[in-house]
Design a protein around this nucleic acid. Structure first.
Length: 349
DNA sequence: CCTCCACAGGAACCGGTGGGAA
DNA sequence: TTCCCACCGGTTCCTGTGGAGG
């Protein structure tokens, strides 16, 4: 069934692929580099911008270009407790596996010992997950660590512009990060980004410029655009056309959501499915109680033991942080405290 | 004005896991 | 081997919120 693929190298279509060329990120690249590449005191940074604006890639680009510097990139979506982050920091810095069961003070000692010898950059990607689950204790610790002139803390967020409201006062004032703003890509830049990847990944002549132009003018999110291109390429018999691109949009949404949810649990998935099921053309917002109920039904039909409402309430917050759903908080709506929840990615564009 | 609804979200607690020390 | 301790995902319990309805 699968005919010869037009893809010659799938790597450049992968989300983690670091491209050789960046567009319209000179200012940010420079800002980050000067913050972590000083001989004296290193600077802390907070990177803010929407998903698919190149935050993570830009940091990686800078860090991979530097020598004599130890770097730890932590995905807080998974590492959402103080202990887990410390564990990963120690593993990265010592290059050894660190088993569970230690006291976090042991891990702190180990990390301090190593980081005192070498300049160290700690990147906390999706830091909101850590803050939601565990508060700002870890950031407080890191901001006051011994030898802190040798450590730079870089936090990345899509939902907190400054971290000021998310952190307690003392942590914010000692951390006092420089803000680095990432604007969404322009249509032209996004075209270049996708075109570069397309020409690297796909046999020449097998992708039309118009097709890529269409993607670039339909979204500002590079990660989403890339998924779109990839989905289209997988479906193309001979060439990626604009028409094909239009047709694969629903499937792109699905694949993009799958990728976002892949780092979370099966329960998160069921909650998302519940919201999809409850959302109709006539009813675009759903209430938490309905989600709990539908989730329980879905879980039972999958022979999974449903989790408590309290837990699901937290999981809904996770989906909100990932921006697959949007939650409108009413501390004074029709029925006291409620959330009105809607899909961020509607199935029918 | 009081009570109820339908939730939000803090805090305490629970059982399992995996160290380290005696 | 026994005991103790921290961590973790999860539950239970509880208090707070503000409009609607009596």
């Amino acid at each position: 069934m699968m005919t010869a693929s037009i893809i010659r190298d799938s790597e450049p279509l992968q989300p983690w692929f670091l491209p050789p060329q960046f567009y319209d990120r000179d200012e940010q690249l420079q800002h980050i580099e000067s913050a972590v590449n000083q001989q004296s005191v290193l600077t802390n940074l907070h990177l803010f911008g929407p998903r698919g604006a190149g935050k993570t890639h830009t940091v990686r680009q800078v860090l991979e270009s530097l020598d004599q510097i130890s770097t730890c990139i932590v995905q807080c979506e998974q590492q959402d407790t103080q202990y887990k982050v410390l564990k990963q920091l120690c593993q990265t810095v010592t290059d050894k596996n660190v088993p569970d069961g230690h006291h976090s003070s042991d891990l702190k000692r180990l990390f301090e010992k190593r980081s005192s010898q070498l300049r160290t950059v700690v990147v906390l990607d999706q830091v909101d997950f850590l803050l939601l689950n565990d508060g700002s204790d870890l950031l407080y610790y890191l901001s006051r660590i011994r030898h802190r002139d040798k450590i730079s803390i870089i936090t990345i967020s899509e939902t907190s512009p400054t971290l000021k409201t998310e952190l307690d006062e003392r942590t914010y004032s000692t951390l006092s990060p420089d803000m680095v703003l990432f604007e969404p890509y322009s249509t032209e830049d996004l075209f270049q980004i996708l075109w570069d990847r397309a020409t690297q990944a796909i046999h020449s002549g097998s992708v039309q410029r118009k097709a890529v132009t269409y993607i670039a003018s339909s979204t500002e999110n590079a990660a989403y655009g890339l998924q779109w291109l990839k989905t289209a390429a997988h479906h193309a018999d001979t060439v990626v056309t604009e028409d094909l691109v239009r047709r694969v949009r629903p499937e792109t949404d699905k694949a993009y959501i799958d990728q976002l949810l892949s780092g979370l649990t099966a329960h998160h998935r069921l909650i998302y499915d519940a919201v999809v099921e409850l959302t109709t053309d006539s009813q675009e917002v759903v209430h938490t109680g309905e989600i709990y109920e539908t989730y329980r039904q879905l879980a039972r039909s999958d022979r999974m033991k449903p989790l408590s409402d309290r837990r699901i309430s937290d999981y809904i917050k996770h989906l909100e942080l990932l921006q697959v759903i949007e939650a409108d908080y009413h501390y004074g709506g029709e029925k006291g405290k409620t959330r009105e929840i809607s899909l961020q990615f509607s199935q029918n564009h």
